[in-house]
Write a protein that binds this DNA or RNA. Sequence first.
DNA 1: CGATTCATTGATCTCGATCAACAGACGTGG
DNA 2: CCACGTCTGTTGATCGAGATCAATGAATCG
Lengths: 249, 249
Amino acid sequence: MLTDRFLKDRRGVSLEAGERARLEAAISTTSTVEARKIIARAGEWLDQSTLLVEGIMSRYLDDRDGLRQLVAIHLPGDFVDLHAYPLKHLDHDVGTMTPATIAIVPHVELDAITEEMPELTRKLWFATLLDAAIHRAWLFRLGRLDAIGRVAHFFCETNVRLQSAGLSDGRQFTLGLTQADVAEICGLTTVHVNRVVRHLREEGLCTFRNGKVEILDAAKLARRGQFDPAYLYIDDPASPPLPDQRPRR
Amino acid sequence: MLTDRFLKDRRGVSLEAGERARLEAAISTTSTVEARKIIARAGEWLDQSTLLVEGIMSRYLDDRDGLRQLVAIHLPGDFVDLHAYPLKHLDHDVGTMTPATIAIVPHVELDAITEEMPELTRKLWFATLLDAAIHRAWLFRLGRLDAIGRVAHFFCETNVRLQSAGLSDGRQFTLGLTQADVAEICGLTTVHVNRVVRHLREEGLCTFRNGKVEILDAAKLARRGQFDPAYLYIDDPASPPLPDQRPRR
DNA sequence: CGATTCATTGATCTCGATCAACAGACGTGG
DNA sequence: CCACGTCTGTTGATCGAGATCAATGAATCG
């Protein structure tokens, strides 16, 4: 199902079968989008939200000179702009990084859910607050880590998130991003990201080639990036989930 | 009333009289707290949330070496840790910066509200997403602005927020913060904040003395910090006229 | 093929960190 | 009352991480 990965294995708030069915029924359309397309622009009025099914998307702010700061990276299973439901218009742009499959949920459906299903409403609310928790980790990253730590932290976070979505085995994963993208995430220049990546490789922590990350020493990498996955609210971050485990009936 | 400033003048989501009364009735206790006290610690289970009535509070993350990154500043009227309601435990500490008056809202009351008042629920949800929007502006600040721009942006933001709470006239306001606090907000050292403050004073943009900010040239300050108040979702930004503003009818 | 994107490397510069010292305000206790 | 911490703000000297500027290589694609 399209919503299978949404709030998968999140502490205490995974969806009941009925809730998942209701959310699935709220989807009006699905579509595929090519890489590097803008889905929503800052300021636009929105009456629908986007659930990411496949691919990678981002949210970002551009400065006066065109320099870009990414404020979020979204992976399959993320409800990319669910916050547009209460906010109604966004303070940032939303776009695809890679080719993506998205499902559209009209806000009138969410109106119905909030009227009828308070428990599911709290879970949707939770999902938006999870994004806020990730924002805070990113603030820590930008405010208190050096360049190497920032990239290490980002790779650790993405590894855990992809693992929880069943898209990383914990040792390597594909991220359709370039070094320039990582620079816009970590508040660095692409030149310096290149040097950081080389450093991480030479130190035996991880490699990053052709958009693929390979974790060589997870413990050291997490230490270098001061990464603690608690803020991701994943059920059991210690042990990797079983490959493609289906939610029990 | 204790909740008078909550969601005051926010676009489309200010509380109706009945909603405000319901929220007011949800308050179990109020109390005063001295400056620099911890209200909640990362990881703790919470069954209540804190509405800030008077004073300034913050949320922050500490790194391995004790360096601190503030991830939010809260002003009177803010529902400081409303996100603890869906999340149940926090990923950061919460504390007072100045002496503060707080009102406590037990989560059982919020349970009742979410069962009975979907519209008010959406407004509470909105309030937590407003904090997330501020997180994103802070990410931009840390990722893409230099030291002077960061401090300028922070002062602009705080001015607008305090103004909307009726606590700034737009030209000057009292912020019980030290230069060291500003450093922990802006990802800088206190020594450098001191130099940035001197620079801003010498350039005639603003002053910062004894925790008091005086805006000398609001337009220039906003330009220096690339500040655009749209992300604060305030009804009628009686904010300084920006060169390229008014995106909406 | 050229054109474009992405990765890589070198040289240089600069912003902000770091280290160190000191001054004023304030409260405390002797 | 003064002596003595502590907290806050201030300034100077030096250092270094990361930006900037510039060039090149490799891969992909029309």
